Simulated scan of single mutants.
Amino acid sequence: MTFLRGFGIFLPAVIGDLEAIERMSYEFCESAAEQGVIYVEARYCPFLLMPDSFTEANFLSQSTGNRDENGKHISAKEVVEAVNKGFQEGERQFGTIVRTILCCIRGKPEWSKDILDLCIQFKGQGVVGIDIAGDEAGEKPIAGEESELRMLDSEDIAVFEKAAELGIHRTVHAGEAGPAQMVWKALTVLKAERIGHGYRVLEDDSIYNYCLNKGVHFECCPTSSILTGSVSVCGTKPHPVMRFAQDGASFSISTDDPTVTNTNLSDEYALCAKWGLTAAQLQETNINAMKNSFAEPSIKQSILEKLYSAYGLKNQN
């Protein structure tokens, strides 16, 4: 939880302030454009940007207030609208296409139905998917299973099953702090199309081989994986991204909480290059990222063509 303390420094300055949230979203586009990013999927939990929803202790608590400093009620819908407005203006000004994924939070199942409703309401208006994040280790053990195996709240399962029925794209944080079985649960129970992090999938050959055979895409965040302690890179032990690259797994490189980690995408690429990823492998991560994005088909095709052209590669579609 030490990693999360950084949020307690800057989030209080924007929580509940719709104007600040819109401005932050706009500046996100500016920063992405400066890094040469042409498409990005930003994810956030709207409830954590509402007054009284954030606590430094566990990053999860919410009281019943949800009012700004003037006593005005602020809804999760208004937060999404503010974010969308900032992204739309940023896209017009800087050219980077931004789509968003709304996050459920483990341990707060009472938020999940509302988050799915927002995904439905804003589908086609910038929101392209749903996620669930949070501490895997905090989940309850399943009776009859080893103590480290965890279960999801029934509300979260129902929400992701409904999302699948409705064609809402799904990604799940799994196998970062929790065991490889959490990746399996994400794929089979929550119907995940992508896996956030997933490093510990390497601890179970059967699950890992399943992921390789099915082309499961892993969203890797090298810097945060070390800072959170989910990965230890020491001596001759390589980072999981090196194994992914060696085995031809589908993975991409992303920033994770760049304000906290003080990194950008170029830093992440440089770190991976230091570990031994080649330029061709880094190019492949970008192609994999776009292939597995939740972008509209026309946008996906257009950007893939740009990538193949920029890299001097034959379009494989």
Rank of each mutant, 00 (worst) to 15 (best):
F10I: 08
A280S: 13
L11P: 00
A42S: 14
Q62K: 13
N84H: 14
F294Q: 07
V231K: 02
G276R: 08
R92T: 09
Y44S: 02
V83S: 01
S147H: 07
M290Y: 06
G138R: 07
D153Q: 08
Q283D: 15
V40T: 09
Q246V: 10
R99S: 09
T100W: 05
Q125R: 15
K162M: 06
K274S: 15
V37N: 01
E176P: 07
L307D: 02
G71A: 04
N288T: 15
W275I: 14
L4V: 11
K237E: 13
H197V: 05
E176R: 01
G95H: 08
G124R: 10
Q246S: 14
F122V: 14
G144C: 06
D156N: 15
K300W: 12
P179M: 03
I21K: 02
N286A: 08
A13S: 10
E110Y: 12
S61D: 13
V172I: 15
E56R: 13
K191M: 04
E203T: 03
M242I: 14
A186E: 04
L102Y: 00
E78D: 02
E305N: 06
A13E: 09
E30D: 04
V216Y: 07
C45L: 02
T171Y: 01
I97V: 10
V172G: 08
G215R: 06
D156I: 15
T285A: 10
L4E: 08
V233T: 08
S252R: 09
M50D: 00
I207A: 01
D205V: 06
D257I: 13
Y210E: 09
I195K: 00
T261K: 08
K291Y: 05
E219A: 11
D131L: 05
G178N: 01
E145T: 14
E193F: 05
Y44K: 01
D153Y: 05
S266E: 14
Q281F: 09
H173T: 09
N264W: 12
G65H: 14
F294I: 12
S250G: 04
I157L: 13
I9F: 11
G95Q: 11
V83A: 05
G144M: 04
H239W: 09
P51S: 02
G71D: 01
C119G: 13
C221Y: 15
H169W: 05
K274L: 15
Q88G: 07
